[in-house]
Design a binder for these strands. Structure first.
Lengths: 198, 198
DNA sequence: AAGGTCATACCGACCGGTAGGTATGTTGGC
DNA sequence: GCCAACATACCTACCGGTCGGTATGACCTT
Protein backbone atom coordinates (compact mmCIF):
# COMPACT_ATOMS: atom_id res chain seq x y z
CA UNK A 1 0.00 0.00 0.00
CA UNK A 2 1.33 3.37 -0.92
CA UNK A 3 -0.59 4.93 1.90
CA UNK A 4 -1.74 2.50 4.55
CA UNK A 5 -4.22 4.97 6.00
CA UNK A 6 -6.26 5.54 2.88
CA UNK A 7 -8.94 3.00 3.64
CA UNK A 8 -9.16 4.17 7.21
CA UNK A 9 -9.60 7.73 6.08
CA UNK A 10 -12.55 6.61 4.00
CA UNK A 11 -13.98 4.58 6.85
CA UNK A 12 -13.50 7.44 9.26
CA UNK A 13 -15.21 9.90 6.98
CA UNK A 14 -18.09 7.52 6.34
CA UNK A 15 -18.37 6.81 10.04
CA UNK A 16 -18.75 10.44 10.93
CA UNK A 17 -21.07 11.33 8.06
CA UNK A 18 -23.35 8.37 8.53
CA UNK A 19 -23.55 8.88 12.24
CA UNK A 20 -24.85 12.39 11.76
CA UNK A 21 -26.78 12.18 8.49
CA UNK A 22 -27.72 8.54 8.31
CA UNK A 23 -27.02 6.00 5.61
CA UNK A 24 -29.17 7.13 2.71
CA UNK A 25 -28.31 10.80 3.07
CA UNK A 26 -24.62 10.04 2.92
CA UNK A 27 -23.41 9.68 -0.65
CA UNK A 28 -20.16 7.93 -1.49
CA UNK A 29 -19.01 11.15 -3.14
CA UNK A 30 -19.58 12.96 0.13
CA UNK A 31 -17.42 10.35 1.79
CA UNK A 32 -14.71 10.67 -0.83
CA UNK A 33 -14.74 14.44 -0.63
CA UNK A 34 -14.50 14.35 3.16
CA UNK A 35 -11.54 12.00 2.87
CA UNK A 36 -9.97 14.06 0.08
CA UNK A 37 -10.11 11.14 -2.29
CA UNK A 38 -12.01 10.19 -5.40
CA UNK A 39 -14.47 7.51 -6.28
CA UNK A 40 -11.86 5.48 -8.10
CA UNK A 41 -10.06 5.13 -4.82
CA UNK A 42 -13.23 4.33 -2.94
CA UNK A 43 -14.25 1.48 -5.19
CA UNK A 44 -10.76 0.13 -4.99
CA UNK A 45 -11.30 -0.57 -1.32
CA UNK A 46 -15.03 -1.19 -1.10
CA UNK A 47 -17.20 -3.24 -3.36
CA UNK A 48 -20.04 -0.78 -2.96
CA UNK A 49 -21.99 1.39 -0.59
CA UNK A 50 -23.62 -1.47 1.27
CA UNK A 51 -20.25 -3.03 1.95
CA UNK A 52 -19.12 0.33 3.30
CA UNK A 53 -22.17 0.41 5.53
CA UNK A 54 -21.37 -3.02 6.89
CA UNK A 55 -17.81 -2.07 7.71
CA UNK A 56 -18.95 1.20 9.26
CA UNK A 57 -21.34 -0.71 11.52
CA UNK A 58 -18.56 -3.13 12.47
CA UNK A 59 -16.19 -0.26 13.13
CA UNK A 60 -18.74 1.52 15.29
CA UNK A 61 -19.22 -1.55 17.42
CA UNK A 62 -15.47 -2.14 17.68
CA UNK A 63 -14.93 1.43 18.87
CA UNK A 64 -17.72 1.15 21.39
CA UNK A 65 -16.26 -2.04 22.83
CA UNK A 66 -12.76 -0.56 22.79
CA UNK A 67 -14.16 2.44 24.63
CA UNK A 68 -16.03 0.60 27.37
CA UNK A 69 -13.98 -2.54 27.72
CA UNK A 70 -10.77 -1.19 29.26
CA UNK A 71 -12.67 0.95 31.73
CA UNK A 72 -14.67 -1.96 33.08
CA UNK A 73 -12.23 -4.85 33.00
CA UNK A 74 -10.24 -3.43 35.91
CA UNK A 75 -13.24 -3.49 38.20
CA UNK A 76 -13.70 -6.56 40.32
CA UNK A 77 -17.26 -6.14 41.53
CA UNK A 78 -19.79 -6.89 38.79
CA UNK A 79 -22.40 -4.50 40.15
CA UNK A 80 -19.81 -1.75 40.27
CA UNK A 81 -18.95 -2.53 36.66
CA UNK A 82 -22.56 -1.98 35.69
CA UNK A 83 -22.70 1.27 37.61
CA UNK A 84 -19.47 2.43 36.01
CA UNK A 85 -20.96 1.66 32.62
CA UNK A 86 -23.96 3.78 33.57
CA UNK A 87 -21.72 6.62 34.73
CA UNK A 88 -19.82 6.60 31.47
CA UNK A 89 -22.98 6.59 29.38
CA UNK A 90 -24.30 9.43 31.46
CA UNK A 91 -21.18 11.54 31.15
CA UNK A 92 -21.10 10.90 27.40
CA UNK A 93 -24.52 12.51 27.16
CA UNK A 94 -22.81 15.89 27.00
CA UNK A 95 -21.16 15.01 23.72
CA UNK A 96 -23.36 15.35 20.66
CA UNK A 97 -21.46 12.64 18.81
CA UNK A 98 -22.08 10.15 21.60
CA UNK A 99 -25.80 10.78 21.59
CA UNK A 100 -26.02 8.70 18.46
CA UNK A 101 -25.79 4.99 17.89
CA UNK A 102 -24.94 3.80 14.41
CA UNK A 103 -26.58 0.44 15.04
CA UNK A 104 -29.88 1.91 16.15
CA UNK A 105 -29.83 4.42 13.33
CA UNK A 106 -29.13 1.78 10.70
CA UNK A 107 -31.74 -0.60 12.01
CA UNK A 108 -34.32 2.16 12.07
CA UNK A 109 -33.53 3.36 8.59
CA UNK A 110 -32.65 0.15 6.77
CA UNK A 111 -34.41 -2.78 8.39
CA UNK A 112 -36.78 -3.10 5.42
CA UNK A 113 -34.60 -2.03 2.53
CA UNK A 114 -31.27 -3.61 3.55
CA UNK A 115 -31.96 -6.86 5.38
CA UNK A 116 -28.31 -7.78 5.48
CA UNK A 117 -27.28 -4.59 7.26
CA UNK A 118 -30.18 -5.09 9.65
CA UNK A 119 -28.85 -8.49 10.52
CA UNK A 120 -25.33 -7.19 11.13
CA UNK A 121 -26.57 -4.42 13.41
CA UNK A 122 -28.95 -6.75 15.23
CA UNK A 123 -26.07 -9.08 15.95
CA UNK A 124 -23.90 -6.28 17.38
CA UNK A 125 -26.74 -4.97 19.51
CA UNK A 126 -27.37 -8.45 20.81
CA UNK A 127 -23.71 -8.88 21.70
CA UNK A 128 -23.69 -5.63 23.61
CA UNK A 129 -26.81 -6.61 25.51
CA UNK A 130 -25.31 -10.00 26.32
CA UNK A 131 -22.12 -8.34 27.47
CA UNK A 132 -23.85 -6.24 30.13
CA UNK A 133 -26.18 -9.11 30.93
CA UNK A 134 -23.20 -11.19 32.07
CA UNK A 135 -22.24 -8.56 34.64
CA UNK A 136 -25.83 -8.31 35.78
CA UNK A 137 -26.02 -12.06 36.15
CA UNK A 138 -22.86 -12.11 38.22
CA UNK A 139 -24.10 -9.26 40.35
CA UNK A 140 -27.41 -10.99 40.85
CA UNK A 141 -25.75 -14.21 41.91
CA UNK A 142 -23.79 -12.21 44.44
CA UNK A 143 -26.32 -9.76 45.82
CA UNK A 144 -29.79 -10.97 44.95
CA UNK A 145 -29.61 -14.69 44.24
CA UNK A 146 -33.24 -15.22 45.18
CA UNK A 147 -34.72 -12.51 43.00
CA UNK A 148 -36.79 -13.61 40.04
CA UNK A 149 -35.75 -11.16 37.35
CA UNK A 150 -33.85 -12.05 34.22
CA UNK A 151 -30.43 -10.39 33.78
CA UNK A 152 -30.67 -10.44 30.03
CA UNK A 153 -34.11 -8.82 30.16
CA UNK A 154 -32.79 -6.06 32.41
CA UNK A 155 -29.83 -5.49 30.12
CA UNK A 156 -32.23 -5.32 27.20
CA UNK A 157 -34.28 -2.77 29.11
CA UNK A 158 -31.18 -0.65 29.61
CA UNK A 159 -30.43 -0.66 25.91
CA UNK A 160 -34.05 0.19 25.15
CA UNK A 161 -33.82 3.16 27.47
CA UNK A 162 -30.57 4.32 25.93
CA UNK A 163 -31.73 3.88 22.35
CA UNK A 164 -35.05 5.58 23.02
CA UNK A 165 -33.48 8.38 24.99
CA UNK A 166 -31.06 9.04 22.15
CA UNK A 167 -34.01 9.45 19.82
CA UNK A 168 -35.64 11.88 22.20
CA UNK A 169 -32.31 13.65 22.53
CA UNK A 170 -32.09 14.00 18.78
CA UNK A 171 -35.59 15.40 18.80
CA UNK A 172 -34.97 17.97 21.49
CA UNK A 173 -31.31 18.42 20.61
CA UNK A 174 -29.96 18.00 24.11
CA UNK A 175 -28.80 15.02 26.10
CA UNK A 176 -31.17 15.45 29.01
CA UNK A 177 -33.31 12.46 28.16
CA UNK A 178 -30.28 10.16 28.25
CA UNK A 179 -29.13 11.47 31.61
CA UNK A 180 -32.58 11.14 33.11
CA UNK A 181 -33.03 7.70 31.56
CA UNK A 182 -29.80 6.47 33.11
CA UNK A 183 -30.81 7.94 36.45
CA UNK A 184 -34.15 6.14 36.38
CA UNK A 185 -32.45 2.91 35.46
CA UNK A 186 -30.13 3.29 38.44
CA UNK A 187 -33.12 3.66 40.70
CA UNK A 188 -34.72 0.62 39.12
CA UNK A 189 -31.54 -1.40 39.60
CA UNK A 190 -31.52 -0.40 43.24
CA UNK A 191 -35.01 -1.76 43.62
CA UNK A 192 -34.09 -4.99 41.83
CA UNK A 193 -31.23 -5.57 44.21
CA UNK A 194 -32.96 -4.43 47.34
CA UNK A 195 -35.94 -6.70 47.73
CA UNK A 196 -35.38 -10.26 46.73
CA UNK A 197 -38.86 -10.59 45.30
CA UNK A 198 -37.89 -8.42 42.29
CA UNK B 1 -63.52 17.77 -5.67
CA UNK B 2 -64.40 15.09 -8.09
CA UNK B 3 -63.18 12.43 -5.73
CA UNK B 4 -62.94 13.56 -2.14
CA UNK B 5 -60.76 10.60 -1.15
CA UNK B 6 -57.93 11.21 -3.57
CA UNK B 7 -55.75 13.11 -1.17
CA UNK B 8 -56.45 10.65 1.59
CA UNK B 9 -55.48 7.80 -0.65
CA UNK B 10 -52.13 9.49 -1.22
CA UNK B 11 -51.69 10.18 2.47
CA UNK B 12 -52.64 6.62 3.36
CA UNK B 13 -50.20 5.15 0.89
CA UNK B 14 -47.41 7.47 2.04
CA UNK B 15 -48.21 6.68 5.65
CA UNK B 16 -47.85 2.97 5.13
CA UNK B 17 -44.78 3.13 2.92
CA UNK B 18 -42.90 5.60 5.09
CA UNK B 19 -43.70 3.66 8.23
CA UNK B 20 -42.08 0.57 6.80
CA UNK B 21 -39.37 1.94 4.52
CA UNK B 22 -38.64 5.32 6.01
CA UNK B 23 -38.75 8.74 4.41
CA UNK B 24 -35.80 8.71 2.02
CA UNK B 25 -36.47 5.22 0.69
CA UNK B 26 -40.06 6.17 -0.16
CA UNK B 27 -40.26 7.94 -3.49
CA UNK B 28 -43.26 10.00 -4.46
CA UNK B 29 -43.68 7.73 -7.46
CA UNK B 30 -43.93 4.78 -5.10
CA UNK B 31 -46.63 6.64 -3.24
CA UNK B 32 -48.48 7.49 -6.44
CA UNK B 33 -48.27 3.94 -7.68
CA UNK B 34 -49.53 2.58 -4.37
CA UNK B 35 -52.45 5.00 -4.55
CA UNK B 36 -53.06 4.26 -8.25
CA UNK B 37 -52.47 7.88 -9.16
CA UNK B 38 -49.86 9.84 -11.01
CA UNK B 39 -47.38 12.50 -10.09
CA UNK B 40 -49.47 15.22 -11.63
CA UNK B 41 -52.16 14.40 -9.16
CA UNK B 42 -49.73 14.24 -6.29
CA UNK B 43 -48.30 17.68 -6.87
CA UNK B 44 -51.78 19.03 -7.16
CA UNK B 45 -52.35 18.20 -3.50
CA UNK B 46 -48.87 18.52 -2.02
CA UNK B 47 -46.31 21.21 -2.61
CA UNK B 48 -43.53 18.63 -2.42
CA UNK B 49 -42.16 15.62 -0.65
CA UNK B 50 -41.29 17.44 2.55
CA UNK B 51 -44.81 18.78 2.83
CA UNK B 52 -46.05 15.22 2.42
CA UNK B 53 -43.72 14.13 5.19
CA UNK B 54 -45.07 16.79 7.48
CA UNK B 55 -48.66 15.78 6.85
CA UNK B 56 -47.78 12.11 7.29
CA UNK B 57 -46.24 12.89 10.66
CA UNK B 58 -49.30 14.88 11.67
CA UNK B 59 -51.58 12.11 10.49
CA UNK B 60 -49.61 9.51 12.42
CA UNK B 61 -49.94 11.49 15.60
CA UNK B 62 -53.62 12.13 15.02
CA UNK B 63 -54.27 8.41 14.54
CA UNK B 64 -52.30 7.57 17.65
CA UNK B 65 -54.28 10.01 19.74
CA UNK B 66 -57.54 8.85 18.17
CA UNK B 67 -56.53 5.32 19.05
CA UNK B 68 -55.60 5.86 22.67
CA UNK B 69 -57.83 8.75 23.64
CA UNK B 70 -61.27 7.08 23.57
CA UNK B 71 -60.00 4.05 25.48
CA UNK B 72 -58.62 6.11 28.33
CA UNK B 73 -61.12 8.92 28.70
CA UNK B 74 -63.72 6.62 30.15
CA UNK B 75 -61.48 5.62 33.04
CA UNK B 76 -61.81 7.61 36.23
CA UNK B 77 -58.70 6.57 38.10
CA UNK B 78 -55.55 8.17 36.67
CA UNK B 79 -53.28 5.30 37.65
CA UNK B 80 -55.63 2.86 36.01
CA UNK B 81 -55.52 5.03 32.88
CA UNK B 82 -51.75 4.68 32.81
CA UNK B 83 -51.95 0.93 33.27
CA UNK B 84 -54.54 0.66 30.55
CA UNK B 85 -52.23 2.59 28.26
CA UNK B 86 -49.50 0.10 29.10
CA UNK B 87 -51.80 -2.83 28.42
CA UNK B 88 -52.73 -1.43 25.04
CA UNK B 89 -49.11 -0.80 24.07
CA UNK B 90 -48.26 -4.31 25.15
CA UNK B 91 -51.06 -5.94 23.22
CA UNK B 92 -50.16 -3.89 20.14
CA UNK B 93 -46.70 -5.48 20.23
CA UNK B 94 -48.11 -8.44 18.33
CA UNK B 95 -48.84 -6.28 15.32
CA UNK B 96 -45.88 -5.54 13.10
CA UNK B 97 -47.32 -2.20 12.00
CA UNK B 98 -47.64 -1.04 15.59
CA UNK B 99 -44.03 -1.82 16.34
CA UNK B 100 -43.06 1.31 14.45
CA UNK B 101 -43.35 4.95 15.31
CA UNK B 102 -43.29 7.43 12.48
CA UNK B 103 -42.08 10.18 14.76
CA UNK B 104 -39.13 8.25 16.09
CA UNK B 105 -38.26 7.01 12.63
CA UNK B 106 -38.37 10.50 11.13
CA UNK B 107 -36.36 12.05 13.93
CA UNK B 108 -33.74 9.36 13.63
CA UNK B 109 -33.47 9.64 9.87
CA UNK B 110 -34.01 13.34 9.27
CA UNK B 111 -32.91 15.32 12.30
CA UNK B 112 -29.85 16.60 10.46
CA UNK B 113 -31.09 16.88 6.91
CA UNK B 114 -34.66 18.12 7.50
CA UNK B 115 -34.70 20.37 10.58
CA UNK B 116 -38.29 21.36 10.00
CA UNK B 117 -39.58 17.81 10.05
CA UNK B 118 -37.47 17.16 13.13
CA UNK B 119 -39.20 20.03 14.85
CA UNK B 120 -42.67 18.81 13.92
CA UNK B 121 -41.93 15.30 15.21
CA UNK B 122 -40.30 16.62 18.35
CA UNK B 123 -43.39 18.63 19.10
CA UNK B 124 -45.69 15.63 18.67
CA UNK B 125 -43.47 13.44 20.83
CA UNK B 126 -43.42 16.11 23.49
CA UNK B 127 -47.21 16.36 23.43
CA UNK B 128 -47.56 12.65 23.86
CA UNK B 129 -45.15 12.64 26.78
CA UNK B 130 -47.00 15.53 28.38
CA UNK B 131 -50.27 13.74 27.89
CA UNK B 132 -49.24 10.69 29.90
CA UNK B 133 -47.39 12.90 32.35
CA UNK B 134 -50.68 14.52 33.33
CA UNK B 135 -52.14 11.18 34.32
CA UNK B 136 -49.00 10.30 36.22
CA UNK B 137 -49.13 13.61 38.04
CA UNK B 138 -52.75 13.04 39.01
CA UNK B 139 -51.97 9.52 40.14
CA UNK B 140 -49.04 10.73 42.15
CA UNK B 141 -51.11 13.39 43.87
CA UNK B 142 -53.56 10.66 44.79
CA UNK B 143 -51.38 7.75 45.76
CA UNK B 144 -47.87 9.01 46.41
CA UNK B 145 -48.06 12.71 47.19
CA UNK B 146 -44.86 12.65 49.20
CA UNK B 147 -42.68 10.91 46.63
CA UNK B 148 -39.97 12.95 45.00
CA UNK B 149 -40.08 11.77 41.42
CA UNK B 150 -41.09 13.92 38.48
CA UNK B 151 -44.15 12.73 36.50
CA UNK B 152 -42.89 14.22 33.28
CA UNK B 153 -39.53 12.48 33.73
CA UNK B 154 -41.26 9.14 34.29
CA UNK B 155 -43.44 9.67 31.24
CA UNK B 156 -40.32 10.49 29.25
CA UNK B 157 -38.75 7.29 30.52
CA UNK B 158 -41.72 5.32 29.30
CA UNK B 159 -41.43 6.79 25.83
CA UNK B 160 -37.71 6.10 25.83
CA UNK B 161 -38.39 2.49 26.67
CA UNK B 162 -41.02 2.21 23.97
CA UNK B 163 -38.96 3.93 21.31
CA UNK B 164 -35.86 1.94 22.17
CA UNK B 165 -37.74 -1.34 22.39
CA UNK B 166 -39.26 -0.69 18.97
CA UNK B 167 -35.75 -0.36 17.56
CA UNK B 168 -34.71 -3.62 19.17
CA UNK B 169 -37.91 -5.18 17.86
CA UNK B 170 -37.07 -4.04 14.36
CA UNK B 171 -33.63 -5.53 14.80
CA UNK B 172 -34.85 -8.90 16.01
CA UNK B 173 -38.10 -8.77 14.06
CA UNK B 174 -40.34 -9.65 16.93
CA UNK B 175 -42.18 -7.63 19.53
CA UNK B 176 -40.67 -9.27 22.57
CA UNK B 177 -38.55 -6.31 23.56
CA UNK B 178 -41.62 -4.05 23.69
CA UNK B 179 -43.57 -6.50 25.83
CA UNK B 180 -40.68 -6.97 28.21
CA UNK B 181 -40.00 -3.24 28.31
CA UNK B 182 -43.60 -2.51 29.27
CA UNK B 183 -43.48 -5.21 31.92
CA UNK B 184 -40.35 -3.71 33.47
CA UNK B 185 -41.91 -0.28 33.44
CA UNK B 186 -44.93 -1.66 35.25
CA UNK B 187 -42.66 -3.03 37.94
CA UNK B 188 -40.87 0.29 38.17
CA UNK B 189 -44.15 2.15 38.49
CA UNK B 190 -45.13 -0.16 41.30
CA UNK B 191 -41.94 0.76 43.12
CA UNK B 192 -42.53 4.46 42.55
CA UNK B 193 -45.97 4.25 44.08
CA UNK B 194 -45.08 1.88 46.87
CA UNK B 195 -42.44 3.67 48.91
CA UNK B 196 -42.92 7.39 49.25
CA UNK B 197 -39.21 8.09 49.07
CA UNK B 198 -39.15 7.21 45.34
C1' DA C 1 -83.00 23.64 -21.10
C1' DA C 2 -79.24 24.13 -24.18
C1' DG C 3 -74.97 25.99 -24.69
C1' DG C 4 -71.00 28.35 -23.21
C1' DT C 5 -67.35 29.27 -19.57
C1' DC C 6 -64.35 28.29 -16.19
C1' DA C 7 -62.09 26.23 -12.25
C1' DT C 8 -60.79 21.98 -10.46
C1' DA C 9 -59.02 17.25 -10.68
C1' DC C 10 -56.07 14.54 -12.77
C1' DC C 11 -52.80 12.75 -16.44
C1' DG C 12 -48.25 11.59 -18.34
C1' DA C 13 -44.28 13.20 -20.85
C1' DC C 14 -40.37 15.54 -19.78
C1' DC C 15 -36.28 18.04 -17.37
C1' DG C 16 -32.25 18.78 -14.49
C1' DG C 17 -29.64 16.99 -11.06
C1' DT C 18 -27.53 13.46 -8.62
C1' DA C 19 -26.61 8.93 -7.17
C1' DG C 20 -24.11 4.45 -7.49
C1' DG C 21 -21.19 2.19 -10.22
C1' DT C 22 -17.76 1.30 -14.26
C1' DA C 23 -14.07 1.76 -17.59
C1' DT C 24 -9.97 3.61 -18.64
C1' DG C 25 -6.30 5.56 -17.50
C1' DT C 26 -1.79 7.23 -14.85
C1' DT C 27 1.60 6.82 -11.35
C1' DG C 28 4.96 4.87 -8.46
C1' DG C 29 7.22 1.24 -5.79
C1' DC C 30 9.16 -3.64 -5.65
C1' DG D 1 7.70 -4.43 -16.12
C1' DC D 2 4.09 -5.55 -13.37
C1' DC D 3 0.80 -4.80 -9.98
C1' DA D 4 -1.29 -2.06 -6.37
C1' DA D 5 -3.00 2.55 -5.56
C1' DC D 6 -5.06 6.06 -6.92
C1' DA D 7 -7.49 9.62 -10.51
C1' DT D 8 -10.82 11.00 -14.27
C1' DA D 9 -14.48 10.64 -17.21
C1' DC D 10 -18.45 8.71 -18.07
C1' DC D 11 -22.78 5.71 -18.05
C1' DT D 12 -27.29 4.64 -16.52
C1' DA D 13 -31.04 4.86 -13.50
C1' DC D 14 -33.84 7.24 -10.75
C1' DC D 15 -35.84 10.96 -8.23
C1' DG D 16 -38.09 15.33 -7.20
C1' DG D 17 -40.38 18.54 -9.58
C1' DT D 18 -42.51 21.04 -13.85
C1' DC D 19 -45.58 21.69 -17.50
C1' DG D 20 -48.90 21.45 -21.07
C1' DG D 21 -52.85 19.27 -21.62
C1' DT D 22 -57.59 16.96 -20.97
C1' DA D 23 -61.86 15.77 -18.89
C1' DT D 24 -65.53 16.76 -15.89
C1' DG D 25 -68.83 18.98 -13.45
C1' DA D 26 -70.73 23.51 -11.48
C1' DC D 27 -72.37 27.76 -12.69
C1' DC D 28 -73.92 31.36 -15.59
C1' DT D 29 -76.47 33.16 -19.55
C1' DT D 30 -80.28 33.49 -22.50
Amino acid sequence: MRNPQTKERLLDAAHELMLSKGYAATSVEDVCKAASLTKGSFFHYFSGKEELGRQVADEFYRRAQDGFGPILTGIRDPLERVHTYLNVRESLADDQAHLRCMLGTFVQELFTTHPHLREVCASHLEHHIEWIARDLAEAKALYAPGADWDPRGVSELLQSILQGAMILSKATQDGGAVRRGVQHFRTYLQALFKNEGG
